[in-house]
Design a protein around this nucleic acid. Structure first.
Lengths: 352, 352
DNA sequence: CTTTAGCACTCGAGGAATATGAGTGCTAAA
DNA sequence: TTTAGCACTCATATTCCTCGAGTGCTAAAG
């Protein structure tokens, strides 16, 4: 059932003043703000209707109304004006991102920090790799008599290396031999397949040589593991404490623990409705218990060919959705522009 | 002026019960706990003396006493029993550290997390590199027609790489030429010296070649910068909220902001009294303002040949010093044993 | 000289009672 | 359908009071 225009204006006024003040909104305040030339009594009637329909809630008999989850939902879907960013703000964002094309994760980290600063809410970031990553090539470089560098490059263009110490020196031909074995037998394999291949090889290879191969392959497996592992990072958790709903520590603590690295519970359900690239989860729409009274606004962006990143803002259901969505979407766009398909694949070792 | 044995016992009892309860300690409680067979009145007299001498403080005329900074200092220096760790606890620490010799920073991160868990306080870690770091060698690997990997190894055995895309292909001899220039002109130079050398070279080199050189050298300079930059990390900040002195958000917020990445103010004064490898800073002894009401217990450990790490615990002045120092010193020892000089230099790219 | 018992005093914490006022629902008139 | 009026509700703030732990001081006892 569609709401009358007047009801919508009232709902909108309530949501926005509640967002601004964090206190239940009464009919008087609405009368002033909604720009309607009706008395408070009329508004009270309309508010009673909206309460019946589930868009508003009453903390107790005689306080003002606050929006329910459904109320926020409606507001977000239909009523909200997209805010424009000021030139200054876009400037700030660009500065933060363009400093220099550094490593992927560092940029993302910094992006999170800046987003947190300009939105006044905590921010999380996540990068999810595609399902199957393999090693594209191995390189070995002798550096001293008793050490070489193993360089591993994955098919999503991440390059990592490790200094390997060896008890006895290695001749150049031996090194090339090693390199040949690695490149012929372990390229194009996923982590699990590598493990298998390594097992099979053990029986029919000289122990000394096998040990070295295993060392490098295990490193490669670690790299692959590190790639597919979801990297969850947060920034600005202390912003939580600035909002009245978290003045009580009992409220703040669990959410903060969830956001900081401490809790080992499964992370945010990255249920990005595929297709859409901006997603708003309001209060109970969050699956996770720690987020029941929390809203999450998240956006996704592309990283290179085969990865997708998510960046999101966490706050009380009374979140300034208009402000947050405006900033967030600009951010996500900028990130896609930086890392997206058009650009060369992400450079450098994109270590954690 | 030395304190009588009885005064010391009383002071000790006060410090320890205050640490346990976070509430001012009265003469009655001391009478029971100090194990002295004297009346509360006597103890009151002694406590008055201790207050005069500056070891105790009175929040208001008629509450119990709490230790002053000087009182804690005395306690830490003379009165405190070193706690023994239980077998279980050492086990836990060892498990956490020995999982696998992974990258330096990851191990340190994990160490911080575990230390925070077993001490119930936030923990910070820092790694300070030696003053002058240089590049030990460059390697270039062609990977595709239009990209190569630049591998940079520093003299503290850190290896990093970057994928460099180039518009036009590069022949093998050209690549070797490039490598030769880099290795002959930029090895052994500090960051600043590199910059100079690069400037000089600009005038007398073909533009196309120079561009590539500059690309790699700039990357190397970034690596050096990253090495000398102090890496400050924290774990378990939310533990702060568990302690009554930070129940009021106004108290907790600044400290939390300081500890999390948000504040850009200069970090902890790593004024490790050189020589000593365990350091306790009590309240006002901290230079930084954000730490005025906070105690910091820190220990240092060696990393390889030329780096030194600091790991520390932050908490209210009413901190369980005995517990914390015991755990911390064990931790620092274990870390030194892992990364110290006897072991091969830290392996792998020790990226942040 | 030191220790102890006794006592009046202080001051914060906690609780009950009270006042305040914003906001509501309902009714009756416009 | 809108408005004014009015009685009612209930969270919050304020005030006042009591309670009790703890103190300092004094005078007596060891």
């Amino acid at each position: 059932m569609a709401l009358s225009d007047r009801k919508k204006r009232i709902l909108r006024a309530i949501v926005e003043t509640y967002i601004a003040t964090a206190e239940p909104v009464g009919s008087k305040a609405v009368a002033q703000l909604a720009g309607l030339d009706v008395s408070t009594a009329t508004i009270r009637n309309e508010m009673a209707d909206l309460t019946d329909q589930g868009y508003l809630e009453q903390p107790h008999t005689s306080a003002g109304r606050i929006p329910s989850a459904a109320g926020y939902r409606l507001y977000v879907n239909e009523l909200m004006d997209r805010q424009q960013l000021t030139l200054q703000e876009t400037q700030r964002i660009n500065d933060a991102l363009n400093l220099k094309m550094e490593e992927l994760d560092r940029v993302i980290d910094r992006a999170g920090k800046v987003l947190s600063q300009i939105s006044d809410y905590p921010v999380f970031t996540m990068a999810a790799a595609k399902e199957r990553i393999t090693v594209k090539r191995f390189d070995l470089l002798m550096v001293e008599e008793n050490a070489f560098i193993a360089v591993v490059m994955t098919d999503n263009s991440v390059v990592k290396n490790k200094l390997v110490h060896i008890p006895d020196g290695l001749s150049d031909p031996q090194l090339q031999m090693l390199s040949a074995v690695l490149n012929s037998s372990f390229v194009g394999l996923s982590r699990e397949e590598m493990e298998e291949a390594l097992d099979k090889m053990e029986t029919r290879t000289a122990p000394g040589a096998f040990e070295l191969i295993a060392l490098v392959v295990e490193f490669a497996m670690e790299v692959l593991a590190g790639q597919s592992e979801q990297k969850f990072r947060t920034a600005g958790i202390t912003h939580l404490l600035e909002h009245p709903e978290y003045r009580s520590l009992d409220k703040a603590k669990p959410l903060m623990a969830y956001l900081s690295e401490e809790s080992d519970v499964p992370r945010l359900p990255a249920t990005l409705d595929s297709g859409k690239n901006m997603n708003i989860l309001i209060g109970p729409e969050n699956v996770n218990d720690a987020l029941k009274d929390t809203s999450v606004v998240m956006a996704s962006y592309d990283i290179g060919d085969n990865m997708r990143g998510v960046i999101g803002v966490v706050g009380p259901t009374r979140m300034d959705y208009a402000k947050v969505t405006a900033r967030l979407s600009y951010f996500a766009d900028s990130l896609t522009r930086m890392f997206g398909k058009e650009l060369p694949a992400p450079e450098g070792d994109s270590e954690e």
